[in-house]
Amino acid sequence: MPSLGDMTSNPGAFVMAALLVGFGAVALAKLYGLIFMRWKTPFRVGEAMNVNRAEVVEWSGQEGYVSAGGELWRAQSKDALAPGDEVAISAVNGLLLKVKKQG
């Protein structure tokens, strides 16, 4: 790597050194994130969500969207539902919730 005196007279060397330092900083930040931040917030999907109630946000026919656990979920139900209805989650199939009207 060129010395500091060489870089002042050669702008190409300065740009190359700046790029190397920048890429190095980004690589260290990514490595830090991979090692130390990966266990901070586990994803909770499906059964791990541990939520059994939801509120209907949008509904048409037998499907729509409900708010459960602070997230918007696609849902299906055989019951007639309307926005604002409280529903119970009866099953989780991937990212689809099966819901029933609270009785």
Rank of each mutant, 00 (worst) to 15 (best):
M1F: 04
S3H: 01
S3F: 03
L4F: 01
L4N: 03
D6F: 00
S9V: 06
N10E: 02
N10L: 01
G12F: 06
G12I: 01
F14S: 09
V15T: 10
A17K: 10
L19K: 10
L20H: 03
G22K: 01
G22W: 10
F23E: 11
G24C: 05
G24W: 09
L28Y: 02
A29M: 12
L31P: 00
L31F: 14
Y32L: 13
Y32P: 02
I35M: 07
R38G: 05
K40R: 15
K40W: 12
T41H: 14
R44T: 11
V45T: 11
A48I: 01
M49S: 12
N50M: 12
N50C: 03
V51R: 05
V51F: 00
N52V: 10
N52H: 11
R53C: 00
A54E: 08
W59V: 01
G61I: 00
G61C: 04
V66R: 06
G69L: 07
G69D: 04
G70L: 08
E71N: 11
E71M: 15
L72N: 09
L72K: 11
Q76M: 11
Q76K: 14
S77D: 03
K78Q: 09
K78N: 05
A80Q: 11
A82C: 07
G84M: 09
D85T: 10
A88K: 14
A88C: 02
A88N: 14
I89A: 06
I89N: 06
A91D: 15
A91R: 10
G94D: 11
G94Y: 00
L95P: 00
L97Y: 06
K98E: 15
K98W: 03
V99Q: 06
